[in-house]
Structures are given as structure tokens and as C-alpha cells.
């Protein structure tokens, strides 16, 4: 464990909690892409099946359970409890355009053609594009609630910190994983446009609205 991975995990946890609280407190999921949340639930489900097969540490196990629990709770709040506030018309990204190519790529490019490894690879590739429905929805509505931008900021920051974690691990442990790194770079690049708007607008107290 290193400072980049720890702050990355805490940033990820913060994002997940911010989103859950936003929906719960405002009793509304307006502006939130349910499809992205479905993808995140799928990412955690396919990546954390090793909870059933191996124990790494209490931290690892507890965080995985929190991530999975919050992901499904968020999907439940969006599609069941606060379904009336779900903006389905603007959340129109076709999930099959992400899941099918990612599934195919995971079968072609992986470390080992075993069940858990393919699922892990699928989850890594899927996570890198899982935010697209959310970013697409914001581009369609032309704006985002400030609390939603904070959610996106911490979510984007987490994988950017993981990139530093991988540099650290390569330098100090001689460890690196090309699949996780490439997917992590792609994932972080997808946030660059948002990061720019977040820093130039939201941090200056303005509302995030497009076109910029």
C-alpha cells in the first residue's frame, strides 16, 4: 500500500458516498445517469468475485463490500425508490455499445484465459468507459448540479491517483500491469474535459453548464 493508492481509494469512497447522500438527501436522482451506475455495479460484481475465493486483507475485503453495497444501493435508489425523478430521456446511452466490445476485448487481450481473470479484465476495461453515459447525459442536458460535479471530480481523481500508484509500484516493487495501466490512462483521459470545466467553473463558484 502507498499514499497514492490509499488517497485514491478514499477519493473513490468519497465519490460513492457523495452520490449516495445526494440522492438520499434530495430524494432525487435528477441529472444522474442510472446506466453508468449499472455499469459500476457490474464492474464491482465482476471484479470482486475473488471475495469468495481469496482473502487479501481486512481493508481489501471491507472496501470491496462497501463498494458493492453502495453500488447496488445507488442503482436501487435510482430505478426503484426515486424512479419518478429518474431522467430516462436524457440517459439514453446504449449500454450494449460498451458492454459487448469490452466483453470481446476482455476475451482477446488478457493475462490468462481463466474465468476469474477474464472477468477481472472485463471489469478493468468496463470501468474505463463506465462514466461515458453520465458524461453523455450532462452533454445532453447541458448542465450538472454542483454536488454531481463533486462526485465526478472525486471519481475521476481516484483513477488519476492510481496512475501514480502504479508508477510508485513499478519503481519500488518492480511491479506493473499493462492492462490496468492502459485502461486507467484511458479512464483518466475521459475526465480531462470535465476536469477543465470543474476547475475553471465550479471551483470559481459558477454552475457547470455547457457549451463551455
Amino acid at each position: 500500500m502507498n499514499i497514492f493508492r490509499l488517497t485514491g481509494d478514499l477519493s473513490h469512497l468519497a465519490a460513492i458516498i457523495i452520490l449516495l447522500l445526494k440522492i438520499w438527501k434530495t430524494r432525487s436522482c435528477a441529472g444522474i445517469s442510472g446506466k453508468s451506475q449499472i455499469l459500476f455495479a457490474l464492474v464491482f460484481t465482476t471484479r470482486y468475485l475473488d471475495l469468495l475465493t481469496s482473502f487479501i486483507s481486512f481493508y481489501n475485503t471491507i472496501m470491496k463490500l462497501i463498494y458493492i453495497g453502495c453500488a447496488y444501493a445507488t442503482v436501487y435508489l435510482i430505478y426503484m425508490k426515486f424512479k419518478a425523478t429518474y431522467d430516462g430521456n436524457h440517459d439514453s446511452f446504449r449500454l450494449e455499445f460498451l458492454v459487448v466490445p469490452v466483453g470481446g476485448l476482455a476475451c482477446l487481450v488478457n493475462h490468462d484465459f481463466s474465468f476469474l481473470e477474464i472477468l477481472w479484465t472485463f471489469s478493468i476495461y468496463l470501468e474505463s468507459v463506465a462514466i461515458l453515459p453520465q458524461l453523455f447525459m450532462i452533454s445532453k442536458t447541458g448542465e450538472a448540479e454542483t454536488i454531481t460535479t463533486h462526485y465526478l471530480f472525486f471519481l475521476g481523481l481516484y483513477r488519476a491517483l492510481y496512475l501514480f500508484n502504479w508508477i510508485w509500484r513499478f519503481y519500488f516493487e518492480g511491479f506493473f500491469d499493462m492492462i490496468a495501466i492502459v485502461a486507467g490512462v484511458v479512464q483518466t483521459i475521459l475526465y480531462c474535459d470535465f476536469f477543465y470545466l470543474y476547475v475553471t467553473k465550479v471551483l470559481k463558484g459558477k454552475k457547470l453548464s455547457l457549451p463551455a
Binding site: 481509494d9 473513490h12 481473470e117 511491479f175 500491469d177 490496468a180
Partner: peptide, 10 residues
């Protein structure tokens, strides 16, 4: 030898 892929990571 560290693991081939970061299974110790979240």
C-alpha cells in the same frame, strides 16, 4: 515476484 496483475488492488 509480485502478482502478474494487481489483484491486491481495489
Amino acid at each position: 515476484q509480485p502478482p502478474s496483475s494487481p489483484k491486491d488492488e481495489l
